Amino acid sequence: MTQSLNSAQLACWRAYIESSQRLFNQLEDELRAASDLNLGDYQVLVLLSEAPGQRLRMGELAGRLVFSPSRLTYQISSMEKRGLVTRQPCPDDRRGSEAVLTAAGLLTLQRAAPQHAASVREHLMDDLSEAELGTLTRVFERLGERLAPTRPSSANPTTS
């Protein structure tokens, strides 16, 4: 039988779940009101804007967003209809496809970013000390690494 959480662990878990959901909802509401983007749209635009050639293979994008392939397909289809991204065949592997940021998508991101950054600052960052920022960064980086899917053994060791 699995051991239940002690009172300190349970308090931490509940505080994390409830506050992270409230934070997500607040950021999403403010982003939608200011830009008609949801957080999924915003993250796609950010990742594509930072990628070489402003394009990423769909599988890589899904992995970075922690989306299932079907969820990413739905997300990209919705964004294509709004002219924010396009899908194009991969130049080096015609079987795959890439999501590509459009000029309209980049402009939308540039307009939304200042307000979103202000929301993140107001609702999270401004309430944390430098020590707390460091602690949270270490905790979530460690958790992210532990929870990330393991790479297949054929992965290139120089890029791992």
Rank of each mutant, 00 (worst) to 15 (best):
L5W: 06
L37S: 12
S77Y: 01
Q115H: 09
T86V: 03
L128R: 01
A118W: 03
E28Y: 08
T73I: 00
R95C: 03
E18D: 15
G83C: 01
E145Q: 12
Y42V: 09
L39D: 09
E18Q: 15
H123S: 04
Y74M: 11
R32C: 11
P114H: 07
P69S: 06
R121V: 05
E30Y: 06
L124R: 02
P157V: 04
R95K: 10
S68R: 14
R138P: 00
Q110Y: 13
G59V: 14
P149D: 07
T86E: 07
T2Y: 09
N6G: 13
S4T: 05
L143P: 00
D126V: 02
L23N: 08
E122C: 06
C12W: 05
V139G: 01
G40S: 11
M58F: 01
T73H: 02
R94Y: 01
L147I: 00
L45W: 14
A131W: 06
L31T: 15
R14I: 14
F24Q: 15
S77N: 12
G134L: 06
S20K: 15
M125T: 10
R64D: 04
L72M: 03
S7C: 09
G144T: 00
V120S: 00
A8E: 10
T108Y: 10
A117T: 04
Y42L: 15
Q115I: 07
A33E: 15
Q88H: 06
P69Q: 09
A34F: 05
S35N: 14
